[in-house]
């Protein structure tokens, strides 16, 4: 199990999933943004992340939901965060902290790629 680094998102277990990859300690490092927090939904369907480009800010929540039969993950290219395996119908929510912008992919199907862009606090 990978422990969080300063660059990681805060991950809360959602739905029926119990395999959270971030520790509760990480939660205390959540950053409240100046604007209202938003929940962004990313569907994984037909072997694609939809949308495949997402703009979020610290404090927002991102929810990945797998609609495919095949299990998938959403995993940072640098492996700094990972939703863990999402089976059909399962979701995982991530509360964005000071995660850096960057790409992510599915560990099981490496051709599945998407981009996460995080606005920095001073740009809000």
């Amino acid at each position: 199990m990978k422990l969080p680094t300063r660059r990681e998102a805060l991950v809360n277990t959602a739905a029926a999933l119990s395999a959270a990859v971030f520790t509760p300690t990480s939660l205390s490092r959540a950053i409240a943004s100046d604007g209202p927090s938003i929940t962004h939904n990313v569907e994984i369907r037909k072997f694609k992340f939809v949308p495949d480009h997402l703009l979020a800010k610290p404090g927002d929540t991102i929810v990945w939901t797998n609609l495919d039969i095949a299990p998938h993950t959403a995993t940072a290219n640098d492996r700094s965060w990972d939703t863990g395996m999402l089976k059909k119908g399962q979701s995982k929510s991530v509360t964005v902290s000071e995660i850096e912008s960057g790409g992510y992919f599915c560990r099981f199907h490496p051709h599945m790629k998407a981009e996460l862009q995080i606005e920095q606090k001073d740009s809000l």
Binding site: K46, F47, D68, I69, A70, H109, P110, H111
Partner: peptide, 16 residues
Amino acid sequence: EAGLQIFKAHEGHATM
């Protein structure tokens, strides 16, 4: 049809 999407992804992965 859903299975075909998966197997086509496998074909691409196998090609790589």
